[in-house]
């Protein structure tokens, strides 16, 4: 660390950036109807939307872990042709506007979709307008976050332990379960939380693919949007505040991890 005066050319934009990020949150707190807050928090619609959000985000994270960790391992530990392409494909949903993701999901898994048409005619299963559809939409946007952070953790991990295990005769599977997983567990946890937070905030893909119906597909972000649209600003602020509190709590829980990250 070098010492000396902090250059204004760096300090001023830095403070601007900070204010830019914090000001909207202050606005939210400033407009919160504190007096009616407890009563609004217990409204059945709010409770329902929050419950649905927590359930779907957790389910989506569970499935993402199931699919994402092996995928990350494959990218980090196995050299195969087209690996760079695969990695690029995985990052597409990351940069894709979620609404576009929702349309893409409809065209693939909707009732007339590529795979969805077959699902519907063979099994009578149709994902749009179901809670399962919400989980699918959330997984689509959140999975890349998990894969990328777990892959990062795997690449950062010392491979000598895995090599030692292999030398001692462990199979790749045993090495994975007994050496690799414990080694990158913190990375997986961090990726999982990031994935969960992203799933919790998912809006565009959900409303496009899964629709909007209270108790079935209306998650918190959808409820915020609908409440705002119907002109109930106070209601929208309360719902937003809940999401803010949940997100900040998660951030606080991860504080040490993130603040010490390079």
């Amino acid at each position: 660390m070098t010492r000396g005066r902090i250059p204004g050319a760096l300090l001023v934009p830095a403070i601007c950036g900070l204010i830019f990020l914090v000001l909207p949150l202050v606005g939210l707190l400033w407009r919160t109807p504190w007096s009616t807050l407890p009563q609004r928090l217990t409204e059945p619609e709010v409770v329902e939307a929050l419950r649905l959000s927590l359930v779907t985000a957790s389910l989506a994270t569970g499935f993402c872990l199931l699919l994402g960790v092996p995928l990350a391992w494959l990218l980090a530990r196995v050299t195969f042709p087209g690996r760079r392409l695969v990695r690029a494909l995985i990052t597409v949903p990351l940069v894709l506007p979620p609404v576009v993701g929702g349309i893409a999901l409809l065209l693939a898994l909707g009732r007339r979709g590529l795979l969805g048409g077959w699902l519907d005619s063979t099994f009578g299963v149709s994902l749009p307008f179901t809670t399962a559809g919400v989980v699918v939409a959330e997984m689509f946007v959140a999975l890349p976050f998990l894969v990328i952070s777990v892959e990062g953790a795997l690449r950062g991990a010392d491979t000598r332990y895995e090599e030692a295990a292999a030398t001692l005769g462990a199979t790749r599977w045993t090495t994975f379960t007994h050496v690799t997983l414990p080694l990158v567990a913190p990375g997986i946890a961090a990726g999982g939380v990031l994935c969960w937070a992203r799933a919790l905030g998912e809006f565009g893909a959900t409303i496009t693919f899964a629709g909007n119906y209270p108790g079935i597909t209306q998650t918190m972000p959808l409820a915020v949007y609908q409440t705002m649209e119907s002109g109930d600003l106070d209601g929208a602020v309360v719902l937003s505040l809940i999401l803010l509190v949940v997100s900040v709590t998660i951030l606080a829980a991860l504080r040490d991890r993130w603040l010490t990250a390079p």
Binding site: L106, G110, R111, R112, P128, F129, I207, G211, N212, Y213, P214, T217, Y225, Q226, E229
Partner: peptide
């Protein structure tokens, strides 16, 4: 009991066009 409550009439119509409803 509808399956979805859309934010405007065009969105509701789009669901018919897509064959989702």
């Amino acid at each position: 009991t509808p399956v979805t409550l859309e934010q405007d009439v065009k969105a509701a119509l789009a669901k018919v066009k897509l064959g989702e409803v």
